[in-house]
Design a protein around this nucleic acid. Structure first.
Length: 260
DNA sequence: ATGCCTAACTAAGTTAGA
């Protein structure tokens, strides 16, 4: 039975880490890729190199920060939206959406929200509310939908090596977790948790304190599947080898496979 | 309570990440 692979990867600077991205694309050959933290303006997006690797792409960049893209192997994603609805005051490039292989794919980079409390945390929660609204409207279509990206939320204490030094962090505040839980209550399937209910799985290891070397990670990159896609879910995982490469992003690519 | 490490912007030092 043929399968499709959808992945999400916070690249942490696509220009600086282009070799790492191309190495991963060549080795794992995912069919669809959601990228976050491009950290470059639109004109600096390395589309030629990505095309040469066999991928079409859509992207929305921004000077220095944020930025999201969707890549598809041997085809161009069909863009359906950039930015959340009612985004007139959005200064950040944090959401892009496309139809690929019959799946509506939302690629998101949710605000980090630190320091907490403060205006950045308020912004995180407001953005989250708008995302929850949009997610509901997508879910209600009944179409196969995938919402993939860096959610900047540690869903439970089973998704972090140790909460001790993170208790004040925006990523595990009750408000952040409550938003994520409300999202799941709409009916979405958290693919990594669904396929590995009892495993310690991390997608991010910060650059401090040798956290990669000690596997002191967080699970904050998530792939959420609507019901009509979740029934096709075969497997999910993290390409941890990417985090161990020289000059790596602090995130690792996280993926699902579904029946085609 | 803060720094640790890293990238972008810019040109030495700040901002942001999580």
């Amino acid at each position: 039975m043929s399968t499709l692979t959808f992945a999400t990867f916070n690249i942490n600077g696509i220009r600086s880490r282009l070799p790492a991205l191309l190495t991963w694309l060549e080795r794992e050959a995912p069919d669809v890729v959601c990228l976050q933290e491009l950290k470059c303006v639109d004109s600096a997006f390395p589309i030629a190199e990505i095309n040469a690797a066999g991928y079409g792409a859509i992207w929305q960049g921004e000077k220095a920060w944020n930025g999201v893209a969707i890549l598809a192997r041997d085809m161009d994603p069909i863009e359906t939206r950039r930015g959340l609805p009612a985004n007139e005051d959005d200064a950040h490039s944090r959401y892009i959406e496309a139809a690929v292989h019959g799946v509506l794919v939302g690629c998101l980079y949710l605000p980090n929200g630190n320091p907490q409390p403060g205006p950045k945390f308020e912004h995180k929660l407001k953005w989250f509310e708008r995302f929850i609204d949009h997610a509901q409207s997508l879910y209600d279509t009944g179409h196969p939908v995938l919402l993939a990206g860096d959610y900047n939320v540690i869903p439970t204490d089973a998704d972090i090596y140790n909460t001790r030094s993170w208790l004040k962090d925006a990523l595990l505040q009750p408000e952040s977790r409550a938003c994520y839980e409300r999202l799941l209550q709409q009916g979405w399937t958290d693919a990594l948790r669904e396929t590995h209910p009892d495993e310690r799985i991390y997608t991010f290891w910060d650059y401090f304190r040798r956290h990669w070397e000690s596997n002191s990670g967080l699970r904050i990159d998530h792939l959420l599947l609507s019901d009509s896609l979740a029934t096709r879910l075969k497997d999910a995982g993290v390409d941890t080898w990417v985090r161990g490469e020289p000059h790596a992003s602090d995130h690792a690519p996280t993926w699902i496979t579904v029946t085609a």
